[in-house]
Simulated scan of single mutants.
Amino acid sequence: MENLLAPIQGFLNCETPDAWVAEAVKKENLAVLLTDHLICELKAAQSAMFLIRRYAVDADSAKALLDWLKPYEDFTYRQIGNWRELEKFKLNKSMLVKSGSRYGQELVDKMVMLIREELHHFYQVLEMMNDYGVEYDKIESSRYAKGLLKHVKTHEPDALIDKLICGAYIEARSCERFAKIAPFLDKPLGDFYISLLRSEARHYQDYLTLATDIAGKDISQRVAYFGEVEADLISSSDEDFKFHSGLPIMSAV
């Protein structure tokens, strides 16, 4: 696990504060932790789908992606459907890359795999919630992703590159936090989080590789910039406890 986490720790500008870990492992916060994790898995899948639809595929392929995620979105946002049925929904259409797209196939290949894994993780979190007697209820998202994405440039291809860098930081932080809290949780839940590390680490690398390949130039300054933004969101005081929240407000006082 140390070899797996070393690149993540080198990429992130700060560690998760111990105060956040202490808050995350409180039994009274289990429902919020699992529920927010669940929503984060869906948002990760949605973000990858947006990138494919926006930058890589034709209209029919874009519609197939929407149809694939719709049952998950219906359950999460409209509380429609039985969660036990979700895993039967698959992507049954091959993605047709837009003609002339220089990076479309690479984007599709990496992001479709990511979506499949994030939706499987979504289902696994629901299984954990069921095992721990946590009923799903909608909650507000944290400031974290919005705090990163508000710094994305508005012109292309820089906007795409920035979004990919943000994706790398989100996945890297998720991986780091899974590893941080796993030793302090009940064994089934801790083992579950350890089982996610390898895929989350690969997701971070896929995002960063795509950003570098598409840019075709050195992006280290932009990566460093978002590293500072991300670290500030993680280390600054935050009154709203969530999976990607910052320093718990009582700890920062």
Rank of each mutant, 00 (worst) to 15 (best):
P188N: 12
V97D: 08
C166F: 11
A31I: 10
Q79S: 14
A252V: 04
A215S: 01
R173Y: 10
K150M: 13
V229E: 03
K242L: 14
E73L: 06
N3Q: 13
F241Y: 15
K70I: 04
K88V: 15
G167E: 09
F243M: 11
A44I: 03
E239W: 15
P7F: 06
L189Y: 14
S199N: 05
R173A: 06
C166R: 01
L149F: 14
C40I: 01
V112N: 09
Y207S: 05
E230M: 05
F178D: 03
L149Q: 11
D238K: 07
I214L: 07
T76C: 09
D60A: 04
L86M: 12
D67A: 13
M250W: 15
I165E: 10
A59D: 07
I234N: 04
M128H: 12
K98N: 00
D191S: 15
F89W: 05
G227T: 06
K27Q: 11
A182H: 02
P157I: 09
D191G: 12
L126N: 09
G190L: 09
S245V: 12
R222H: 07
P188L: 12
M1K: 12
E15Y: 10
L96N: 06
I249D: 12
L196V: 03
P7N: 02
R143T: 10
N130D: 15
R84Q: 13
Q79F: 09
F89C: 00
M95D: 02
K153A: 15
R222C: 03
H151R: 01
Q79E: 15
K163P: 01
A252Y: 11
T212V: 05
K43I: 02
L233D: 04
L164M: 05
D206Y: 08
E85I: 07
G100E: 06
V108Q: 09
K187M: 08
A62G: 15
K153T: 14
D137R: 15
R53Y: 08
E140S: 13
F243Q: 06
A179K: 00
H37G: 00
D74V: 04
S251C: 13
Y207A: 04
K70C: 03
T154F: 08
L148F: 05
Y103G: 01
W83G: 00
L33E: 06
L233G: 02
S142N: 02
V152R: 05
A172L: 04
L160E: 13
A172F: 12
V32A: 07
L5A: 00
G100P: 02
P7G: 02
T209P: 03
R84F: 10
R177G: 00
P183R: 02
L119R: 00
K150F: 10
I234P: 03
A201E: 02
D232G: 10
K63W: 07
Y55C: 04
R116C: 09
A172G: 00
K98D: 01
R84S: 09
F11W: 06
A62V: 05
N82P: 08
A19K: 11
D186F: 09
Q124W: 13
K27N: 11
F192A: 01
